[in-house]
Design a protein around this nucleic acid. Structure first.
Length: 386
DNA sequence: TTGCCTTTGAAGAAT
DNA sequence: ATTCTTCAAAGGCAA
């Protein structure tokens, strides 16, 4: 499959992807040569345009886009809320990167328990996010506070959850469920309702990655950062931390296999699939992914160069952001990870161990349209299966 | 319960 | 320099 790889090395993106056409006649190929060249030109111009502006912090902010206009309004609300917070001594900062719901939270000591014992929201539990999340119709903070009062599930896990949170669907570049109740740091004791370890989970936070941006990945206690997992990170329910004493080799190896793993950024086609899959499912009444992917593959080839260029540009930004979030990450890091994880899981089952994977803790933010702020909620889920 | 299927593209390893 | 391999997503299905 022909591919050009003339990356500029600056933004780590393969800026000059070529669309490859398979199983097509010679004439078709000739026709595509010029099409590929055109697409290449489009991509190059996109890349140059993007790169020429990539040095500027301001330019990393979202540009006017008809698709984003509604979100721009949200952004405005966010900026206003931010200013109010800062005027009031708040330390929140907006993220210049709009593709991910960054949370700039300086003091997260009780982020995961944002409510006081009486169920009221603590001051630091209130935070803000960039505008990519959809606005919610929340009747008012009091209603949120009432409904968010901690309750208990049948397994005695304390739960703080607002009923509206189920509507939250962040526009993530990675798996949306990264911010769902199934994604969170695990070290939570069901008995005490508190963190099982002082550092529930220390996921790789790039030290020099993005200026002013940190992913807070542990929950509370000794470590200064609290946690909202990046969508590309797949926590596994194991307590891990660089500061913990190292384990014996065999055990260490086993633990390594369970370490959260940073996923690859999605390529252009994957981004296209993510967007188009629901439409194909609806149109073709087919659910089998293999069939759907075949259809999507055909549709991908039938896209115009402009349409494809949109996804290549998205993918390039994905890679750029990913590389900034995880400067030391390599695709090689994940080689064999799938098989190892599967093997580790089956070994656990063979040993007759209950595949209890700890506790997931997830967070959500609810927009309060009354005073244009966001309210942080925390959900704890006991994990016993995959 | 697990792994395969099926697609394209990116990246690293191997030749 | 070219080719090969792996992994990203998704969910049904066979073993």
């Amino acid at each position: 499959m022909p591919q050009l790889n003339g990356g500029d090395g600056d933004d780590l993106g393969a800026n000059d992807e070529l669309i490859a056409f398979k199983d097509e006649g010679e004439q078709e190929e000739k026709r595509n040569v010029s099409a590929e060249r055109d697409l290449d030109d489009v991509k190059s111009s996109l890349v140059n345009e993007s790169e020429s502006s990539s040095d500027s912090e301001a330019d990393r902010r979202p540009k006017p886009d008809p698709d984003l206009e509604s979100r721009a309004r949200h952004s405005q609300l966010f900026e206003e809320a931010l200013r109010r917070q800062q005027d009031g001594g708040g330390l929140f900062q907006p993220s210049p990167y709009v593709g991910y719901p960054f949370f700039m939270i300086p003091d997260l000591g009780n982020l995961c328990s944002p409510y006081l014992t009486n169920g009221a929201l603590t001051t630091s539990a209130r935070t803000y996010l960039p505008f990519q999340w959809p606005l919610l119709d929340v009747p008012g903070r009091s209603a949120i506070r009432d409904s968010a009062t901690p309750t208990h599930l049948s397994n005695n896990m304390p739960v703080v959850q607002h009923p509206h949170m189920t509507h939250l669907h962040p526009l993530l570049s990675y798996s949306p469920e990264a911010f769902s109740p199934q994604r969170a740091s695990p070290g939570f004791s069901p008995d005490t309702g508190m963190s099982r370890t002082p550092h529930a989970a220390c996921y790789p936070v790039s030290p020099g990655g993005m200026p002013g941006v940190q992913w807070f990945l542990s929950t509370s206690g000794a470590h200064p950062q609290s946690s909202i997992p990046h969508p590309a990170i797949v926590p596994t329910g194991q307590d891990e931390c660089d500061l913990c004493p190292s384990l014996p080799d065999a055990q260490q190896e086993k633990e390594d296999e369970k370490k959260p793993h940073i996923k690859k950024p999605l390529n252009a086609f994957m981004l296209y699939m993510r967007e188009e899959r629901p439409k194909v499912v609806a149109q073709c009444k087919v659910k089998e992914s293999a069939t759907i992917n075949q259809i999507l593959g055909q549709r991908w080839h039938s896209l115009s160069k402009e349409e494809q260029a949109k996804y290549y540009e998205l993918a390039r930004k994905e890679r750029l952001l990913h590389s900034k979030l995880y400067p030391g990450w390599s695709a090689r890091d994940n080689y064999g990870k799938k098989k190892k994880r599967k093997r580790a899981k089956s070994e656990t089952l063979l040993e007759g161990k209950t595949p209890f994977r700890g506790t997931r803790e997830s967070t959500c933010l609810i927009h309060d349209r009354v005073d244009h702020t966001f309210i942080h909620c925390c959900v704890l889920t006991k994990l016993t299966s995959r």
